[in-house]
Design a protein around this nucleic acid. Sequence first.
RNA 1: CGGGACGUAGCGCAGUCCGGUAGCGUACCAGGCUGGGGGUCUGGGGGUCGCAAGUUCGAAUCUUGUCGUCCCGACCA
Length: 492
Amino acid sequence: MSKEITSRAADYSQWYNDLVIKGQLADYSAVRGCMVIKPYGYRLWENMQAALDKMFKDTGHENAYFPLFVPKSLFEAEEKNAEGFAKECAVVTHYRLKTDPSRPGKLMVDPEAKLEEELVVRPTSEAIIWNTYKGWIQSYRDLPLLINQWANVVRWEMRTRLFLRTAEFLWQEGHTAHATKQEAIEETKRMLDVYADFVENWMALPVIKGVKSANERFAGAEDTYCIEALMQDGKALQAGTSHFLGQNFAKAFDVKFSDKENKLDYVWATSWGVSTRLIGALVMAHSDDDGLVLPPKIAPLQVVIVPIYKGDEQKASINMKILPIIKELKELGISVKYDDSENSRPGWKFAEYEMKGVPVRMAIGARDLENNTVELARRDTKEKKTVSMDGISLYIKSLLEEIQQQMYNKAKQFREERITTADTWDEFLKALDEKGGFVSAHWDGTGETEEKIKDMTKATIRCIPLDNLEEDGHCILTGNPSRERVLFARAY
RNA sequence: CGGGACGUAGCGCAGUCCGGUAGCGUACCAGGCUGGGGGUCUGGGGGUCGCAAGUUCGAAUCUUGUCGUCCCGACCA
């Protein structure tokens, strides 16, 4: 990377960190590589959870919870999966502390309390879950088994970034078992569609659905489907994955069922997950220099009302006008905060709520009382408008919908402008360096070529789009024949 | 684990080169004038300068060690 690009990347990192921290979403914690999600950020996550959870239930899934710890022997049962995660596992080896004789008042690990078998802190839960499924599945009548869990996982990454890659993170992981391969593949794709639907329609972030190359595939999967989003610095971000696991885990954990003909077979599996990383995606994709810009459908707070007044008398008359409006807004299911605190002045409040990305701000003062108006400001465009108080609630409701749609359109346009078709190596490099974003190019299908391209450019194959057209061409690097284009990008 | 930067009041920083017992902005507390984009005035509280050892009459400042954080790499579905 050139010096300029390096420093630009550093600036972008700084911009991103500031947004997360000043936007009140999260903070660094005392634990290296971990973060504290603050109440405002957690409300955002709760809103995302609620929408996703409903979608999971609408597609027939149920929630359950499995242990945080995975005995090492279980963890290593599916070898590819274990190998893929081995380098980033936190491991519990002892179960007791004792006072340290050499340091008064301090504690040490009690060497007498060594566990007979180490416990791996789950980096993902396939192992413990499939070990459990073994006891739950005997017959085709037990299938499909459609379970989701909301949990935390730990992956001891060398380098971390708020939300995008932390040592511990929150997510959901779905784990399903099916009688046929066909049904499992359908489930894999169905959940990919659920994710795409959620990210596009709730987070206002367009995604590309595709399948991963072998190099990028989930450890232990037959196929990894993914949704890829584009950030404002031109780098791609994997927003969610859905894996077709074949019979790998069923075989590793000996999960068999009797079909209608009483024949024994291994079940077919899927797993799928999205995490708090989505919050990072949200921040990177929509925010501007004034702070966060949150899509109305998941914003912790959709409308903030700031009164502007001199003295108690004016305040009282504003209250009289505003309280019924607040009631109306709430009845329409809109979350609203009336910030009449005396601690800070209107200008300060404006800036504060902009930083936090509240989609709509309503200001009301003496001038408005005379004219029966309020001032509405929308966060995404920073446009301000004075509108009549009559029918204001319905007006705001439609404004929120408009903001949601416009945020999506803007992000989509941004992405469309950054999908480049490259037919030569020069075009490929030029697109990556000057424009960023996705580069659609032919590839000879080998892992070696993919690896070489990664070494030379830092770009990886983000996915092979599901809606790809067949097209004869030649690999961008080797010139070998290719039948379809894949999407390359530098990624988070 | 390599390269770089940095640890001084809740937060952001100056002071370190050239040693003399700690300062600015902001936030906080009390009160006044204010109030349509981060107001203003007055008064006040808060820091053993990351930690440890050394040099010195004297260390935020010099030396050595150590711990930690961030950025860039390596690593990462």
